[in-house]
Design a protein around this nucleic acid. Structure first.
Length: 749
DNA sequence: TCCGCCACTTAGCACATTGTCA
DNA sequence: TGACAATGTGCTAAGTGGCGGA
């Protein structure tokens, strides 16, 4: 695997990565405040305030004004940044740099099938049994690269990887004729194409969504208190109050932004009388409501077996009725057939919209997508759909627009469906194509570090980070609409620190920023000298809040990547590096003579290496400390047992020395065995403790589900005789049915 | 060319269910 | 058998990237 980055121990086991999102959030908050204050100072202009809610108390009015002022400042600053970026794109030369670089101008699931999407290998066999007139299902080859340049590159790439065994085509393990039918001469798996016009289906029938149950008013005995006195709320206001009450134990409800947003939206649901009386959230007491819901939840837990079964049965009925659709000739499971219930918006991190009211979705908000010739879903009596359309260029069945960000929500198919399975397979095939040309791409971006053009240098350094550190692309975001998070292209100067020498290493870059879901990315990485010098150059004459890559965005980067390889985007690097890391780690960590549990531990370690690379974190489980403590108690007890066993062995040996008979010899042997067993048990417990500790803040599931080519895992299982159920649970096996079906023990990513 | 919209994938958390052990 | 831990599932927020129109 020459040319591959080895995401080796220095990165994977790097102790410098701190999983301390919470502490960091506070730090970031401080930084953000400083940042905003700075902007506020810059922008002293008065903002025009036009908020309909400003008839509220003077105090709130003032606070809101301050907020608007601040936001206005932020927007202006953002605009300034944007303008600067644009200017550089527009081609007006920037000031010449000291180094002399002037910035340049600028499956069918047959009725008897199990219902999951299997690989075409499987499907093809079914196809033969099908009617010949089912011509639209004829597998076609997708042209992977079509321009001359790409073809030439392809030849070069194939030459790059030529020194390969000729006896058996290892890639994909497709050596026999049957399997070869899936691969082209270049060793690529060809996609089965279902249409040439971009249509995703020909027939789609479903029953529409399941709506959230209507609001069930509180019993009279459960009271809301205003200023210490019981206060009867109108139904609408009461419903929104219950949303808040249900979250009362959560940290969210103590946050100023949450409370402010909630109160503002709550007031909108109040009658004018209520509006007049309820003017301060601090005077509202939701405790009785909260207790009531807790008691309800407790009662649900205490329900009899029969009652629980009844609920289960009802859920099953709903699933059977609404949880499936017919797409072409497949009965497919729908992923989320229930409409999101109303509630309070919980953004992640410091989300400016947290606490806002997520309104109830009605049939009139719903767009139904199905085929013309299908039985259309019926709206609930007395209502109508917003629209019924027949768009087979998309895969969703139902959509609506949510009121917080104005984004569209969809009901789509389950990951086990044909349509999702094919897409998933395609994703990994693209990543495998990258494997073939990654050497050339790396050579090119290294070369580009020396480019005379700033935009190319920035592009190449960003690409280096995306490749080496598996950073996300980093699309631009609208400020004030979401939490302040970044990816590679949107990194700001304040997110990195450069040290010519740190902890005995040269040219160290210290990354510290909040990524997707406001998860902290902290990493200290030694980089190549040229990268380091380039970063210094990019940071020259910039403020902390300025973009590090001011001549770059994701669209420019992806356009460039598209030229390097058909279908290549920043995201593909993450998939590629994750999968290749898993494969390498499995090779390194698996020892043939180990037993199954030890091999599984090795698998988890390989998986963990990927999760660390991709920065997949989780909050430590609430019971973590306790469960660790319990495990430690067990370990201590085992140690005591070991001590005793050693002592017993010693005395048995002494006894045997004196007696010199068979019986005492046997006793020694028995004691030895017992000691050995205890030692093994202790080791197992200690391994378990290590495993758990290492996993404390690392989420393995995300990479397993989204980044690791499942064929690698399936092949590993087959090679070492590990039951695939040990690696994938039922749902995961359904999702990866295509891979389980396809991969042999010699599959190579 | 750029921006915003749209469709889709990726993400972590909360809660439910299942497994394990005393 | 019940308590507790581990695992599985559902939910929905938050990303990525393509496309079309101004």
């Amino acid at each position: 695997m020459s040319g591959d980055h080895t995401h080796n121990d220095s990165q994977i086991e790097s102790g410098s990565r701190v999983n301390d999102a919470h502490r960091h959030k506070d730090k970031h908050k401080d930084r953000e405040h400083r940042h905003k204050d700075h902007k506020k100072d810059k922008e002293r202009e008065k903002s025009k305030y036009s908020n309909s809610e400003h008839k509220d108390s003077l105090e709130r009015k003032h606070r809101d004004k301050e907020k608007v002022k601040q936001k206005d400042g932020m927007d202006r600053h953002k605009e300034k940044r944007k303008e600067e970026k644009m200017r550089s794109f527009d081609g007006k030369p920037k000031k010449e740099k000291e180094n002399g670089f002037a910035s340049p101008p600028r499956v069918k699931s047959e009725p008897d099938n199990d219902g999951f999407y299997h690989s075409p290998k499987h499907e093809r066999s079914l196809k033969r049994e099908r009617d010949d007139d089912d011509s639209e299902f004829t597998p076609k080859k997708i042209k992977v690269e079509n321009d001359k340049k790409a073809k030439k590159r392809k030849v070069e790439d194939e030459e790059d990887i030529k020194p390969k065994k000729k006896t058996k085509d290892k890639r994909g393990g497709m050596a026999d004729g049957k399997k070869k039918s899936q691969e082209g001469a270049g060793g690529e798996v060809e996609m089965e194409e279902r249409s040439t016009d971009g249509s995703k289906w020909r027939f789609l029938e479903h029953k529409g969504p399941v709506f959230a149950p209507p609001y069930d008013p509180l019993p009279n005995k459960v009271k809301f208190y205003l200023d210490g006195k019981p206060f009867k709320l109108s139904a609408k206001a009461e419903e929104v109050a219950t949303f808040f009450a249900k979250m009362l134990d959560h940290e969210y409800t103590t946050k100023d932004i949450f409370r402010k947003n909630f109160f503002k939206d709550w007031r909108r649901e109040m009658t004018s009388e209520e509006k007049g009386k309820i003017t301060d959230l601090n005077k509202c007491d939701f405790n009785e409501l909260s207790e009531y819901f807790k008691a309800q939840s407790e009662a649900r837990k205490q329900m009899s077996k029969e009652e629980k079964l009844k609920i289960k049965g009802e859920n099953e009925r709903l699933l059977q009725e609404y949880g499936f659709c017919v797409m072409d000739n497949h009965k497919e499971r729908i992923a989320n057939f229930r409409i999101e219930p109303p509630g309070l918006f919980r953004g992640r991190g410091d989300h400016p919209k947290m606490g806002m009211l997520k309104r109830r979705i009605r049939p009139e908000d719903i767009i139904i997508n199905c085929s013309k010739d299908s039985k259309h879903p019926k709206p609930p009596p007395g209502t109508r759909w917003k629209e019924v359309r027949h768009d087979n260029k998309v895969t969703w069945l139902v959509s609506w627009t949510e009121n917080i960000q104005g984004s569209i929500k969809y009901i789509m198919l389950n990951p086990s469906s044909r349509i999702k399975g094919e897409k998933d397979w395609q994703k990994y095939e693209t990543a495998r194509r990258l494997k073939k040309c990654v050497g050339r791409i790396r050579a090119q971006y290294r070369d580009d570090w020396k480019s005379k053009e700033m935009r190319i240098r920035q592009r190449s350094v960003a690409l280096y980070f995306i490749d080496k550190l598996a950073l996300r692309a980093g699309n631009e975001k609208e400020e004030g609409e979401t939490a302040d998070t970044v990816g590679c292209c949107s990194l700001r100067v304040e997110h990195i620190k450069l040290s010519p020498e740190k902890d005995g290493q040269e040219f160290v870059v210290e990354f510290d920023f909040l990524g997707k879901d406001s998860i902290r990315y902290y990493n200290k990485v030694p980089v190549e000298k040229r990268v380091f010098k380039n970063l210094q150059l990019f940071m020259e004459n910039k403020q902390p809040e300025d973009d590090l890559f001011d001549r770059l965005n994701t669209s420019i980067l992806n356009k460039h990547l598209q030229e390097l390889m058909d279908g290549l985007t920043a995201k593909v690097f993450r998939t590629y590096n994750a999968s290749i890391t898993l494969q390498q780690q499995l090779k390194e960590l698996t020892t043939p003579e180990e037993n199954i549990p030890a091999k599984i531990l090795s698998y988890n370690r390989a998986n963990r290496a990927v999760a660390i690379l991709c920065n997949h974190q989780r909050a430590p489980p609430k019971t973590f400390e306790k469960s660790m403590q319990n495990l430690q108690t067990k370990i201590d007890a085992k140690k005591d047992q070991l001590f005793d066993a050693k002592r017993e062995l010693k005395s048995a040996k002494a006894d045997a020395k004196v007696r010199r008979d068979e019986k005492s010899k046997k006793a020694v042997e028995a004691k030895k065995k017992a000691l050995q067993r205890i030692e093994e048990q202790l080791m197992k417990l200690e391994v378990q403790a290590t495993d758990r500790e290492e996993n404390k803040q690392i989420a393995l599931g995300t990479s397993k589900l989204n980044y690791l080519d499942p064929r690698i895992s399936v092949a590993w299982c087959k090679k070492w005789g590990i039951p695939v159920e040990k690696i994938y649970n039922k749902t995961q096996r359904e999702k990866f049915a295509w891979a389980i079906d396809m991969a042999e023990d010699d599959y190579e990513f």
